[in-house]
Amino acid sequence: MIIPILAAFAAGLLVILSRQVNGRLSMSTTPLISSFWNHFVGFAFLTVVGLVIGGLIPANIAEMPWWIYTGGAIGVVFVAAGSWLITRIGAVNSTLLVIAGQMVFGVIFDLLRGAPVTIWAAALGVVLILAGMWLTQRKR
């Protein structure tokens, strides 16, 4: 059980490390150029890993809906935005507000598509998050 726990925690560390590293590249280039390198390097690496392990492309690829291919486009915008933001509002604020947006829009998204949501917990969670956001934006 210790391995999956460490893996999940390390994944969180890497999310921030990647935003920090991409942010540094964007300081010497632009957020969009940085986002390109992020995707290109990740793609090259995963292609190599996929070729070594094998079975990268599933047999049912033709049956996938077209919008499966939009994830990368959304990612380009997200990564560019992350680089732009971290150099302006810092790591803690970026992390907190991205998580806040992810959670609040996640709850709304699940409600809209009729996925099961436990209302009291989701609502209380959103209220706590909004309170935390209010703290981040107060003048010092």
Binding site: G75, F78, A81, G82, L97, V98, G101, V104, F105
Partner: peptide, 16 residues
Amino acid sequence: HLLAAFASGGILTLAI
């Protein structure tokens, strides 16, 4: 900027 970060979290929800 904070609002933009919040919105980008929404974009992340979609991407995920």
